[in-house]
Nucleic acid binder design. Structure first.
Lengths: 341, 341
DNA sequence: GTGAAAGCGCTAACAG
DNA sequence: CTGTTAGCGCTTTCAC
């Protein structure tokens, strides 16, 4: 039998309510009593029963995270651990725990969320994706549950979220290529239904337009976040009368495929084709040549996401949408000067 | 105010206990009542309050996972998501939730575990590392909390765990090189204090010995699970009078560095130096050449780990230690025949 | 400043 | 087969 508040009370010669007040740091409690009770708690190794506490307080000091299904985003593979470290760092600081849940399909997912929310297991929810017309978001809004989206909702623009400025990031990446003297710049894209893809494509287009460079439909290939995606894209994109001499690639993972495809086709990087990519995963600097990539601040995304969510839960004022700064990490794959033509 | 068991009871014209019995699928309840109550539950959108349930049942149907600190294992970056998917799949099936916690240092970590265990928040714990003389394990044993280790404990051999047969895996990998005609085989190692490193080194040595091949101290380099580790190792290992013509590398991540180091030194892979590695992360097939790697069944590790832990919690008989099968995925980096010498 | 008592939502004897 | 009753461990009025 675990030690309860009563055991502490008895040994300290006070009432259970006093012990409770000491735990809650109630102001109207004498310093002496407080000290005495704390001593006894230590002696006995007392730890409050969270279930009882939650039952009466109607909060769990726990936030939920739905583990995305693999189909959704393969890039999570390299994103998830770092992101969760950021989340955990903030949660630990704030004294919250994290409950991870999931479902094998949309229906199960919705059921899980309902169960957790209605069952009082979580005080808020962190969402790691942004599908169009997401029933989970509708549910959370209806039930008035605090939640926060990592990314951007395509349906609502008043959804609390933390994100990168993907338009600006792609703009910067493209600008970088332009500053290297590139004029024929293509774009290897991701799934078109993702906000991230749309935003990065927009930034790319914007940079081209501003610089008065041509935008060619044939220079833009849509792909998946898959191993082969970038690889395959090369056959089609480079097999044109006037192929691009530089590529903005949606993600490092895809960029590895691009690199491989180009090499096999006999192109040299960056001499024949320069490459800029996104997400800056640990391996970007290990390829040959190392890939220039936009660091999206994965840890910071997680840290800020949980911070905002907790603020929402505690009804502190928060801005609806926060942007995490990105940073272009220039490596050889994009440098004209690296090997002058 | 959420719907409680009382609301359901009133509307269904029964007592709260009857509703409770219906939820628990108690055998002595009439089919009619059961149906009626379930109808009402659906109508009202009732979901049981988990806190109240846990309080009285003294179980939380939740297992804990301690998020390892980054310093511990960088290879977790590529391991974590896949592993967690396996864990979640099994937990969802079994109707358990997952609580993730962590600490910034050993003391905090121990405190967190104590808090969760004593506070009744978790029924068992999944440990993702195996430090020598781990205070967390001592605590869990003392408190008699079900737990399961992923990997192998260096201190106790009666700790419930799920692991790969790393000796056999390294043996197989080395054997493969030998079958390719390799006779001078080196080993790029990881941190020596890890059981995984020790086991793989043992398997490597065993294969050499069995084949009557020389084991040279200079052909074995210890490293970290770091980007530069494999890269740097090449300078020292290849700079010997008789350098190895094949390498067994502790991890894919390190192997990327090895690949890069060798290429820069002017060696061709696999013609001059053949490579076999471990963990088979998604990028192993994207390098040039693609790397032969031992797949360790990451998803399966997670799935089995939670399965075993749940069995332990439910006091079903479980074997203390379970091994997940590995599988050598042969790619170009190890094939002599690929480009005959 | 502290204690007594009621109750959070649920389960589990004990009756009937 | 079902209802009544008594808590699980904690917080929180309401007294004093």
């Amino acid at each position: 039998m675990a030690i309860t508040i009563k055991d502490v009370a008895k040994k300290a010669g006070v009432s259970p309510s006093t012990v409770s007040r000491v735990i809650a740091e109630h102001p109207r409690i004498s310093a002496k009593t407080s000290r005495r009770v704390k001593e006894v708690m230590d002696e006995l190794g007392y730890h409050p029963n969270m279930m009882a506490k939650s039952l009466v307080s109607r909060t769990s000091r726990t936030i939920g995270v739905i583990l995305p299904r693999p189909a959704e985003e393969l890039l999570l593979n390299f994103f998830f651990y770092e992101f969760m470290r950021g989340v955990m760092a903030q949660l630990t600081r704030a004294g919250y725990d994290l409950l991870m849940a999931g479902g094998n399909n949309e229906r199960e997912e919705l059921e899980t969320v309902t169960r957790l929310v209605r069952g009082g297991r979580i005080d808020g929810l962190l969402l790691l994706y942004s599908r169009a017309s997401d029933p989970v978001i509708s549910l959370l809004r209806k039930e008035d549950v605090p939640f926060l989206l990592v990314g951007r909702s395509l349906d609502y623009d008043d959804v609390p979220s933390v994100d990168n400025d993907n338009v600006q990031a792609a703009y910067d990446a493209t600008k970088h290529l332009i500053s290297q003297g590139q004029r024929r710049i293509g774009f290897v894209s991701g799934p078109a239904h993702l906000a991230m893809t749309q935003d990065r494509l927009a930034g790319y287009t914007k940079a081209l337009t501003e610089a008065g460079l041509p935008f060619k439909q044939g220079w833009v290939v849509e792909g998946e976040f898959l191993l082969e995606s970038g690889y395959r894209a090369m056959a089609s994109i480079m097999n044109q009368p006037e192929p691009p001499t530089a590529l903005v690639v949606i993600d490092d993972f895809v960029a590895f495929g691009v690199l491989k495809g180009l090499t096999e086709l006999g192109y040299r990087i960056p001499e024949d084709v320069a490459i800029v990519s996104f997400n800056n995963i640990a391996l970007s600097e290990l390829t040959m040549p190392p890939i220039t990539s936009v660091d999206i601040g994965t840890y910071q995304l997680g840290y800020t996401a949980s911070q905002m969510l907790i603020s929402t839960i505690q009804q502190d004022p928060v801005q609806q949408r926060q942007l995490i700064p990105h940073r272009l990490v220039v490596r050889e794959s994009s440098l004209r000067t690296f090997s002058p033509v």
